[in-house]
Design a protein around this nucleic acid. Structure first.
Lengths: 272, 272
DNA sequence: GGGTATTTGTCCGTATGTATT
DNA sequence: AAATACATACGGACAAATACC
């Protein structure tokens, strides 16, 4: 084998994990035991474990040991909800600021979604936000930021941006740091006559920043990335009326896109 | 500071990178120079670089040095194409097996998409595939596998699965290892009267396996993950007629989802 | 092509710190 | 308090890849 020793050790451990010889949640032998077992140095064993860590197969806990990762039962978000967003959505986040509908069958199980009170700020629109909202760079926008949890687990960070002009008209509840019953989209329709007739989401995957890693309790070793979704809502004139930026850690989230006529969702298990 | 030294070094380098003091593509000082500069050991400097590597900020090249990563101009795929998929799609992959339409404005630039001839196999449906196609586990299915490139860069791996029964009827071109003009969806409509009236995509992000890492030329350090999309197509009776599994490396791909009425796409730059 | 210098990759041994039990 | 296990940091040696002459 031309491959270095730490890779061979990692490969051996990987086969044990994927064959089920070491079960999820189970502890691996300690670094010193592995060092003796493979006849390598402790540093080399650590290189092997580090390799498996980046592959997302194991995690290390100081003072405890190295464990095979437990896959989190993924939460599934449907990105193609009704754009007109009637208040009567079957099951939806209590204050989803306009973001994708929550999958029914997940909540039919006993998962409980909680949302923090929005943190409202008035900011100057920086480049990507101004471009998406089609307002002048540097002009003022309202940002409403929320933390969302499921069963107490941090699930997503969400920030919605609205042009400050909405507030100067009659939509002054946008700058209140409290939930808007029925959702802001409905509120803007009621107060300003802005109907959201559609939206476009752009998805990308990147490494989390420090804030995100802290909130989601993501191990700082970079094996878990985040999915960033920029959702721009358009009113009946085709003008952007809303930009929602959502961050989802990829270790606990999946997404659905429905196009055309599809049968009812049934996301049993498809761990791939 | 309670933070370890290698993190402090990494933080110092990170600020230099994100402030633009070290430009994308530019080479960092060598490990030995950094060791002298920070008064640390070479291994500690290497830990700092390794940390930046997992953050996706730098990449190391043996024999050459450490470089600030160049972001790849992302290719944007629209996941919500017309489900009826008429042959007259404005711009579409020459043999897109039914996968999402290709964004126009990208090809309007001079990016050129090429697709390998399909690699056709007859397999027994394993669990997740059988479940999605709603066929008995262990029954035979046709798989058509393709490699897709843009401007010569590996862009996605795509495998479509069809029930073997389609071939036993008149759709025998499914098992030919050559392109089907107009796409297989259109072909199935012509031969079997199966109209695809909709599809559902499930997206998830995971670490690449060895095959994927090799094909996409992903650095083996695990900082680049892949997006896996399972797209199930349904015919006019609501029965699954197709399962397409697509793999996209996340360092060069973004995705669009359009819902309702949205204006024309204009994915200028939004590097986030 | 060959040889050499440079640079990162691998591997070792050791010591000490920190978190957990 | 003590033991255990992983985290950090050092220094050294050699290998492998690349660039340059």
């Amino acid at each position: 084998m031309g491959s270095p020793m730490y890779r061979q050790i990692a490969e051996d451990l990987r086969e044990q994990i994927e064959s089920g010889a070491i079960r999820p949640g189970q502890q691996l032998r300690t670094e010193l035991e592995l060092r003796d077992h493979y006849g390598a140095s402790r540093n080399t064993v650590r290189d092997a474990i580090k390799w498996l860590t980046t592959l997302g197969l194991v995690e290390t806990k100081p003072g405890q040991g190295t464990f095979v990762v437990q896959k989190i039962d993924p939460f599934v978000t449907t990105l193609t909800a009704d754009p007109k967003r009637p208040g009567g959505n079957k099951v939806v986040a209590p204050s989803a600021d306009g973001y994708g509908e929550i999958d029914r069958s997940q909540l039919a199980g006993q998962r409980k979604l909680t949302v923090s009170d929005p943190q409202v700020e008035i900011q100057k629109a920086v480049d990507p936000i101004a471009a998406q909202l089609q307002v002048a760079a540097g002009s003022q926008v309202v940002s409403r930021h929320q933390k969302r949890y499921i069963d107490g687990t941090p699930w997503s960070l969400q920030t919605s941006f609205y042009p400050m002009g909405f507030v100067l008209k009659s939509a002054d509840r946008l700058i209140e740091a409290s939930d808007i019953a029925g959702g802001t989209v409905q509120y803007l329709a009621d107060t300003l006559g802005l109907r959201q007739v559609g939206y476009r989401s752009r998805m990308l995957v990147r490494a989390p920043d420090a804030t995100e890693a802290y909130f989601f309790n993501i191990p700082q070793d970079g094996r878990v990335q985040v999915c960033e979704i920029l959702e721009t809502g358009f009113d009946q004139t085709g003008t952007p009326m809303r930009l929602t930026v959502s961050i989802f850690p990829t270790d606990r989230n999946q997404f659905l896109v429905n196009v055309g006529d599809v049968p009812e969702d049934e996301p049993e298990e498809s761990k791939t």
